[in-house]
Amino acid sequence: MEIKRLNDWGIFDNHPVFMVGPCSVETPEQLDNTVGELARLGFKIIRGGVWKPRTRPNSFEGLGSIALPWIQEVQSKYNVQFAIEVASPYHVEEALEHGIRVFWIGARSTVNPFTVQEIANSLKGIDVPVFVKNPVNPDLALWIGALERINQAGITRLGAIHRGFSNFNDKVYRNSPTWQIPLELKTRYPQIPLLNDPSHISGRRDLILPVSQMALDLNFDGFIIESHIDPDKAWSDSAQQLTPSDLAGLIQQLQTRIPSVDNPFLESQLEIIRGHIDEVDRELLEILSRRMKLVEKAGEYKKLNNVAIFQMERWKKVFESRPEWAKALQINPEFVKELFDIIHSESIRKQEEIMEVKNKGSHS
């Protein structure tokens, strides 16, 4: 994909970059007061919801086109640029008519290639910055596909936004960060700017700082953060919005890490540690290989004795015991649960292969 560097977009001055503003545009007064305060604090790119796709009907779904003239007015008044979510060619057309020149595609749109393609078609020949949020579910291929569709429409000022993934088991975050997915995207496409959306990941003000710091530590390029002049009275997502002054205070607390070590001694020490990690990784794979060979033996036994592959009691024992072992070893039990979910899935797949061989043999 041909993508311009963030520094060449012509709209961002600093690193990391920030797009900040209210979850939703609610009234002319709320918008003016919020944008005025954010502009006073030095923010140049303001985000705001106009069309809000909601999970259930009767929720506030944004004011729609009625809010666009208000945005046009505050852009001029405070010399800022506005970024909004677009979910259809109609949204793109309406926004452009009102001088809005920065767009993002939301998580619910990213899951639908038809929707993304319609938006991409409407953007052909238009040189505007576009960000694509990750899909609601943890599907990297869908995210990449959406970015490719927008890029093929001629958009070269193209970025990605990591806003977390739906996970009904997560008791901490509104949307699980699942950091390995945006990092995989960054690994495959290092030229694509990657922003973090700690507001939607957190769902709570108190988590926005640690999530943001983690994103910085992982070398994200910037943030999109929700800020409202009076968050407790916000019409949508009040719990995850910050006042402009609290937002400024949060940014002051963020610590920017250096991307690499220039000191030769420190670099040599890191290389020694990395060498040890490589050795341990090989040992892990050797142990995993031994485990899978034992799984194959179990599969052969089940095949010979006509035993079902999935044994509920056995799986319950594994699923309950391994996190407990992890605790004793000071390893995150939630990580171990996810790890053994993956191992179990592969174990089932291997045993299914063995059973398929048996079934083919019985029909030959």
Rank of each mutant, 00 (worst) to 15 (best):
L147R: 08
E279C: 14
L339W: 09
I343E: 14
R274A: 11
E93A: 12
I331W: 05
N219R: 14
L254Y: 00
D221M: 03
V20K: 06
K77P: 03
K316R: 10
V130P: 01
V132C: 10
E118R: 05
L284D: 11
D237L: 04
D221P: 00
D232Y: 02
D232W: 03
V211D: 00
A160P: 05
G106F: 02
R157Q: 15
A67H: 08
R291G: 12
R54G: 05
K327W: 09
D278F: 15
L266F: 13
F18D: 09
L266I: 15
Q253N: 11
P193E: 10
K317W: 13
W315G: 01
L270Q: 10
A67L: 12
G145W: 12
G222P: 05
E320K: 15
E97Q: 15
S109F: 03
Q351P: 09
M1L: 14
R205E: 02
R5N: 13
I66A: 11
T256Y: 12
L284N: 15
L254M: 03
V35R: 00
C23P: 01
I354W: 02
R322M: 14
N305P: 04
W179G: 07
K316I: 14
Q253K: 10
L247R: 00
L123K: 02
I354G: 01
N79W: 04
F310G: 00
L218M: 13
V336I: 15
T110Q: 04
P231S: 08
S238H: 11
E85P: 03
S24E: 08
G249Y: 00
D246M: 00
V132Q: 02
I208L: 07
V86I: 14
Q30P: 05
F168M: 14
N263Q: 06
H228D: 03
N169R: 14
R291I: 15
Q330L: 11
S362N: 11
N121K: 13
S88V: 12
L304W: 09
G125T: 02
H15T: 04
K327I: 11
I84T: 13
H15S: 07
P210M: 02
I309G: 04
R322V: 14
V80P: 02
W143P: 03
Y173T: 07
M292S: 12
E61Q: 10
R204D: 02
V132R: 01
K171A: 09
L250N: 00
L288K: 14
V136R: 14
I71H: 07
A153E: 12
M355T: 12
A146F: 02
P53M: 04
E300S: 09
K233E: 04
T55Y: 03
P244Y: 00
T34G: 00
V80I: 12
K302F: 06
P182T: 09
D217L: 09
L218N: 03
P113E: 11
S289Q: 15
S24K: 10
T256H: 03
P210Y: 01
R47T: 01
S289K: 15
V111H: 05
D262R: 06
